[in-house]
């Protein structure tokens, strides 16, 4: 369970990124966070695994007060939370398998860390993770030889190998074409349902968000303006979240989609 209690986040330059956030997310939920670019979606997600610090308030993840963690405890805490990025953030020169194996690094003894030699057990676990996202046959290819959708699935496998309770996804399909987007979203949905992993996702494509997520959180200028089941989202609510720029935003997304497609 993730709980935001009166959370505020102000950047050093004075921008208030998050204001009075109060949220509770139960284990196993599929939550989509929507809103304009710069509304604070990314900041919200990155506070959960302490990639960003919060300025005030309390953020509790499974009885752990996140803002009180320090050094090694932060890293140990992050082990339970997977993260997926818009630009995949893989080591493109390395093979698919070694990108997934990276998940096990913090558990390794020192000499294995520096030599980069992994145990057979870990290799099998990594291959299993690749199998779950359906790219087992690509295991020994270099990442830069794969398509965008396949790369995002490598990133997903890397996260699965971590065996997380929560997956945070920051615009996971923004660099993908519409068809691949759906394949990746199907993977997310399956992982969410079969493994009961919570998924919290920033997403630009509202239609896809409505189609896949159980719950929508709308953010405008650092504040939560909507929080509820997907079925309750109406055109009026979307207008509110996007501050009247709903049509413009939608057109921009469609243009981008047609460009990519």
């Amino acid at each position: 369970m993730i709980a935001f209690i009166e959370v505020n986040k102000t950047y050093p330059n004075g921008t208030a990124a998050l204001q009075n956030i109060n949220l509770t997310i139960e284990q196993g939920e599929f939550v989509a966070v929507i809103g304009l670019s710069g509304a604070g979606k990314s900041t919200l997600i990155r506070c959960i695994n302490r990639m960003h610090d919060i300025t005030s308030g309390k953020l509790i993840v499974d009885d752990v007060d996140v803002s009180k963690l320090k050094g090694a405890h932060i890293r140990k805490f992050r082990r339970r939370i997977g993260m997926i990025f818009q630009s995949f953030n893989l080591v493109t020169r390395a093979t698919v398998l070694s990108n997934v194996l990276v998940s096990f690094v913090p558990e390794l003894p020192m000499w294995r860390k520096w030599t980069g030699m992994f145990t057979k057990q870990h290799k099998i676990q990594a291959l299993e993770a690749l199998d779950k996202v359906g790219i087992l046959d690509k295991a020994f290819m270099r990442v830069d030889q794969l398509s965008g959708g396949q790369q995002q699935r490598v990133a997903l496998a890397r996260t699965l190998a971590q065996n997380p309770d929560i997956i945070l996804a920051d615009e996971p399909i923004a660099s993908l074409d519409p068809v691949t987007s759906r394949i990746v979203m199907d993977d997310f949905k399956r992982i969410n349902k079969e493994l009961n992993i919570s998924v919290i996702m920033n997403i630009h494509h509202v239609e896809i968000a409505l189609e896949y997520a159980d719950r929508i959180i709308g953010i405008r200028k650092g504040e939560v303006v909507f929080d509820g089941a997907t079925s309750k989202v109406t055109q009026a609510i979307l207008q509110d979240i996007y501050g009247g720029k709903w049509e413009a935003e939608q057109a921009a997304i469609e243009e981008q989609a047609s460009y990519v497609g």
Binding site: N49, M51, R75, K76, F77, R78, R79, I81, G82, M83, F85, S87, F88, N89, L90, V91, V102, S103, V105, P106, K113, W114, G116, A155, R158, Q162, L168
Partner: peptide, 20 residues
Amino acid sequence: GAFEAMESIGMTRIEAFRFA
């Protein structure tokens, strides 16, 4: 990007440097 991902996995900066 890879460095950021490694940090999100729970690596120290030195470990992230080694692997990213």
